[in-house]
Every structure is written in C-alpha cells, then in structure tokens.
Write a protein that binds this DNA or RNA. Structure first.
Lengths: 410, 410
DNA sequence: AGTTATTTTCTCGACTGTCGAGAAAAAAGC
DNA sequence: GCTTTTTTCTCGACAGTCGAGAAAATAACT
C-alpha cells in the first residue's frame, strides 16, 4: 500500500541519500556529494550543515590536493556518533567485534567455545557478559551502541531475531532481542551467515562489474549447507532471503539428517554425509556430530585416485546440491551462484554431480545452466556483510531520529 | 540504491495515493478521499482538480444520501479515460475481454482453440486479428487502449512478456510485446495464471481478514500444476512471483514429464500422471497429450471404493505436491496455501500424500504445517487478478504522464 | 419565506523543501 | 598586491502540503 508523502519525507530521503553516498564512496567534499547524489549544491549545503549540527558528520580539512582554487573540505562520519557490535557464532568459536560509525574495527575478541553440553541459559549469559566486557574496555556506552548484529548458521525466524535451529544449538531456540534487551537499547538483528556472504558478494560484484547483478546466491559448503539469496529487482528495493536450504528435502524418505528429518540436502552434501557414503555406512545411521576436516580430505584423496565409493560420495553430494539449485531457480528464476566455505576444496569432485543435478530441470534446459563461481574468503565476506547491513540500518535510524536527536547544539 | 526526491515526486506519490484509494473504495467524495489517504482536505482539492482537468476523473453528483449539509460530490474514474484488453490462453479456448478505466467489462469474446497443430506465426496472427476486431466493435482506439494483459499457464521469462514454455504451445516461444507492437502502443504484460490467482486471493483475503496476509501461495491442480506466490513483507512493496513449480524437480531421474524432463512434479501430480500411475503404465511412457476430466473422475471413484492402485496414484500425486510445498516454504518461509483448479475435486484423495510430503521437512516440523484451504472459482480470480494488476499499472502510467498529457484544456 | 444549523468544499497564508544563479571565500599563479 | 580558479555558501523563486476559516449548498425550524 502506498503512503502519504510530504516535504519532510523528501528531506529524510535526501538525508539518507547523502549518508549512503558517504558510505559508498568514503569521505567526500560538498561538490562530490552533489555530483554523486544528483542533489543541487544548495541542498547539499543545507543537509550537511544539519547533519554536522546533529554531530553525525564532521569535516576534515586534510587531503591537500594540489591545485588552484578554494580547497575542498571533506565530510566524513563522526566516528563516535555510533557504534555497532557483531557476534559471530560458529561451531568452535564465538567472535565479538566492535566497530565505530565510520566502519573501522576498534576491538575484537575471540572466545573458544566448549563443545561440552552447555545449557541455553548459560550460553546466553556468557555472551551477554563478554559483550559487556568488550564494550566496557573500549568505553562504548549503551547510548552510542546502536546495533548488535548476531550471525550464525541455521534457520532464522521471520522476526529476524530468533534462532530456530542451528548446527551449534540444535533446536534450542534463542531470541536475541530479548537476550540483550536488559543490557542494551541497541537494535538487535540475527543473520544467517550465508545471507551475509550473499549480500556482501552482491555489493562487491555489482560495484566491480558492469551494473548491478540481478540475482545472486551464495552457497556455503561444509559440515552443514547454507544459502543466502539476493534479489535486486530493477526499480524495487534489493531483497535478501536466507532460506533453510540445508534442510530442504532432497529425496522423500531419504538419508537421515543431523536434524532428525529424512532426506535433507545436508544428509547428502554435508561433510558427515560424504563420510557416511564413502564408508558405506547405512544412510539411516545417526550422523557423527563432528567430522574433522582432515577426514574429508582423506576421502578426497581416495576419490582423486579413483576409489569408486569415495567418488560416488562426492558425486552424490553434488547431485543433491545441483537438484537443490535447480529447485531454487525454478522458484526464484535464473541466478548467479557462488560457492563458499571449506567444502569448495572438493568442488572438482562434486562438479559432475552438480551439473547432473542441474541438467534435470526444465528451467535449466531452457535458459541454460547458471553461472557458477567460487569464493574463498568466506570469513571476510561475513564481516563485510555485517558491516554493510548494520551501518546502513544505523544510517536509517539516525535519519529518522532527526528531531528527537539531542543534537543541534554547539 | 536510493534516488533523489523532490517536491514533484511528492505530488506524484500523492496523486497515485488518491487514485489507489478510488480503486480500492470505489467512487468517493472529497472528504472520504482525505480520510482514506491521510492527506489534508486542501491537498485533495488541488489533486482532484488537477486530475479532473486531465480528464482522468469526473464528478458524479448522484448518491442523494439523505442528511443535512452540503451534499457530497463523488469522484470516479472517467470510463473512457483508458481501456485495457485481457487475453486468456487456455488449452481449449482463447478468451478476450475488454474493460474500461473504471474496471467494468465492456465486451468479451470466446474463441475455441483448434488443438490441431497450428504454427506459432499463425497463432499470433490470429490473436492479433481477433483483438483488433474486438477493439473495433467497441470503438476502442489505439490511443486509449493503454494495456494488454495476456495470461497463460506455463513459464514466463524475466522480461515479463515472453512465454518460454507452456502446456499449450510447448517450447515454442512467443514474445507478446513484439507481437502487439505493430498494432498497439499499449503496455503489454504476460502473466502466469496462478500468479494472478494468488494476487487476487491475497487482495481479497487481506481485505476481508484482519490485516494484510504476510505470504500466500496459490496452487492450481489440473492437467498441469501452477503456482503463484505473493510476498507482502511489512514495510516493503508487495512482491509476486510465478515460479516454474510444475516443472520443478521432484525426484532426480524420476517419471517422464510432458516437458521431456525426468522427475518433474507434474509428472507425478498432473492428471496424465495420475492416469499413468493408476493403470500401472511404466513411468517413462510418453504422457497422453490430453486426458479427459471424466477419466480422472473414474479413477477417483475407484480410489474411493478402495482400489489400491488408484489410491496410490492420488497419494503419490499428493506426496509430490507436499514435498514441493515443503521446498517452497524452506526457501521463502512459512505461508498460507490455497489450492485451486479442477484437481481440487480429488483433494481428499491427495491429502494424505500432501501431509506426508510436508511432514518430511524440518521447517514444517519446527513451525508447524502451513494453513491449507481450497478455492473453487479459479476463472473469476484470474480475471480479478488481471483487473487489479492492469488497472493499477495504468494508474501508475497515467500519473507519470502528467505533464505530457494533452489534458488540461476544457 | 426566511432564518439557522450543519456539512462539505474551496481558498488563503504560513511553512518546508529544492533549485539555479550569483556572491563570498580561499587558495595558487603572476 | 592583483588576478584567476575552484569551492562553498546565500538568496530569491518555485512547488508542494497543511490548518484555519470562508464560501457553498442543503435540511430543519420558526
């Protein structure tokens, strides 16, 4: 449904535009902002003065670019205007990062996770304590910590803050919004890792390539299988989804998955599934909770030497992935696929199965196979995705809070 | 990416708002529009006067609602301000409809389709000729026919006008935009039927129920299987997709589908597939091009009497659908499902299979099964969907054309 | 019939926002 | 010190929305 528009909304929109330009292009002068946004010079003056008064932007007279004329003065985000915290939950560690409003990392802390059974309350309490410690040692107060972004593999609820199922906690659910409500007023979001990877890759490739990419999927291969999809319909806002891909049904009544269901993609393509298939363990065997990476590598060596069962294990994993991607494109349309995660070391072994699984689909037969590529630095992409999404959301909030802000004084 | 905003855009947005309110609530007076849109009375005056000057709206002083005070005067769409044509392609008929800007049907024409092999050029030529005849006899000129909306079962390309694959034409492709370019300047769109059904149902149920529905899928059962999905993310624009559901892979290397692939959902759940399974014809047999509805009914009678193979055929069809819906919700999230089409007469027979196919998924196990209902009047919903989408698109065009319009004179 | 009450529509001035043009500012070159 | 060049800022014009109250149009009342 449409909503009313007015002069004030126009200003909001254009303020957002200025901040977005600054995010995208780094510190910029008055004229650069005007060129980048399409706003007139006069309007840029008004908006930057306003943002300066609210202590969101500051000017840095540096950058003595030789040349005639009045020197440009650059505007940049005032670093202490806001802060954000990221918490990355993975199977073996918890990584905490603290960034300022300009997007620079100011502190980081890695905590080894004990895989020993910890109850959910203890888990949450420990995260709360560590975050408080991290913020404390950088003197970041509840006033300026505006966003907390948690990332994990697994299934996120529609509310965007509840973890429904994860490889780390199983079906023990956590609502991170309520978890942090007592300590912080920050806006809390929970993101699937692959979602962040897809988002970061989309931004990166759209910048470098020719024009924005229509649709992109990031598929993370490892012990579990993750998927993030970015859909940039021209004219509309970019939309991202983090489907429950690893636990989408591959074959009805098929192999037993770690989640307890039968026939999930993960039960064919996850590390434990490859192990199971290679050693001809019956597919209804309860999967090993952890598979050392070296074990999978051993199987890969066997497969590359021509071992039939090892070859079959990777091929079967590929077929499940190929079918899954074919289903994805049947539903959402043709898209570019980027594989990430530790599993891409074995991509060559899975490729025949993937192609096989893809070719089965009418959509692929008509429109051709999707463009497939690999990306190695998953970790960095997760961080970049978190950075982009969170700072953009802070920008939006900062904009909306215009009148409420205590700024404006000198 | 954000775009520049300005005063003129505000006016555009608010003009659109007024037209949308009129679409939703029928003819309305000045005050009703103000209340419905949230705009001030003064603004409504300016906008309605403008639209009247452009000969898009007209006032009808009727509706002598007893009561004191100055009588309300109602604004309504000027019926001749624009026209739209709908062409519905189904396996046995071509239905042409002509509507005016107020949304009332002014002419309709049904043409029996000869199933005899007709070449694609002849098919297109015949449609062009009939549309010209229909418009001619109602005196609708190329100037006022602003939109042509074609609907069919099958797979629509990303461009929104090319039919990639359809049960009617197979993989003979047609780009309807170029097909009509010579005769009309109208904006041409091609929609999947189930897409339109989903869109109409979403609008209808959102109106009647409490608040807008988050997500809804319409699944059409018949000779082929169609799916339309509406995703109304709060805050964002409503998004609709028309996936290639019938030809999404159900089982890798499975039964032979009419499209030539192996293992499509349709190859298990389409009428011909039910027939094939019930009579124990090998699943790699080339499917019958047309299955009379009465044949399927006969099998249903058998199944209801307890015939094992007939029962199995429907159950298997249900499992394929259930798995498909489970995959859909894995990717897009939980949603309400509405079944339509002739196949719902056998819904009771498929239900066990559907539930079975759904239950296999982790998402369903965690969030519970989706809400499922049936809807009988598929044909009417297709028309309503076409009406809503097309008139809304004409409204948008009309708004944008403000300055270019030859209106304004008296 | 004339007056009053009531409701709706329209008009006017204030306010907010964008824009183009040109003034003011600040540096390099001569 | 003056000129040139480039950037930033200021000013008036213009477009749009809004609230308040005037004008319009009818029913009810005397």
């Amino acid at each position: 449904m449409l909503t009313k528009s007015s002069g004030e909304l126009v200003r909001q929109q254009n303020r957002a535009l200025v901040l977005e330009a600054l995010r995208r292009g780094g510190p910029q002068s008055h004229t650069e902002i005007a060129a980048g946004t399409g706003l007139s010079s006069a309007t840029v003056t008004v908006i930057t003065q306003e943002l300066e008064g609210e202590r969101i932007l500051e000017r840095s007279e540096s950058q003595a670019v030789g040349g005639r004329g009045r020197p440009r003065i650059q505007f940049r985000q005032r670093r202490n205007a806001a802060h954000a915290a990221f918490i990355r939950i993975s199977s073996d560690t918890l990584q905490y990062s603290l960034v300022d409003y300009s997007g620079t990392l100011i502190d980081r802390l890695d905590e080894r996770r004990s895989n020993a059974g910890q109850d959910i309350a203890g888990f949450v309490a420990s995260i709360r304590a560590t975050l408080t410690r991290l913020a404390g040692r950088s003197n970041v107060s509840s006033e300026t910590l505006l966003a907390i972004s948690v990332s994990s593999k697994g299934l996120v609820a529609d509310d965007g803050t509840t973890l429904l199922w994860s490889p780390v906690l199983g079906s023990q659910q956590v609502d991170f919004r309520t978890a942090f409500a007592a300590d912080w007023q920050a806006r809390v979001t929970l993101n699937n890792e692959s979602h962040l990877v897809a988002s970061a890759l989309h931004a990166k490739l759209s910048r470098s390539g020719n024009g924005p990419i229509r649709r992109l999927a990031a598929l993370s291969l490892g012990h579990s299988i993750g998927l993030g999809v970015v859909d940039a319909e021209p004219g509309a806002a970019v939309r991202t989804i983090a489907p429950n891909f690893g636990h989408m049904i591959h074959t009805h009544g098929g192999a037993l998955c770690r989640c307890g269901s039968l026939g999930c993609i993960e039960a064919y393509s996850g590390f434990y599934a490859i192990l199971r298939a290679a050693f001809e363990v019956p597919p209804n065997t309860i999967p090993a909770p952890f598979v050392p990476f070296t074990e999978v590598e051993k199987i890969a060596v066997l497969a590359r030497r021509g071992d039939r069962m090892a070859e079959f294990a990777f091929r079967q994993a590929g077929t499940a992935l190929g079918n899954g991607v074919a289903r994805l494109t049947s539903l959402l349309g043709q898209m570019q696929i980027v594989f990430t995660g530790p599993g891409i070391r074995f991509f060559d072994l899975m490729r025949p199965g993937i192609d096989d699984g893809l070719a089965a689909s009418l959509g692929v037969r008509i429109e051709g196979p999707p463009e497939i590529s690999l990306s190695l630095d998953e970790e960095r992409l997760i961080f970049e995705g978190q950075l982009q999404q969170t700072l953009a959301s802070i920008d939006r909030d900062v904009i909306a809070a215009k009148t409420l802000s205590q700024g404006g004084q000198r």
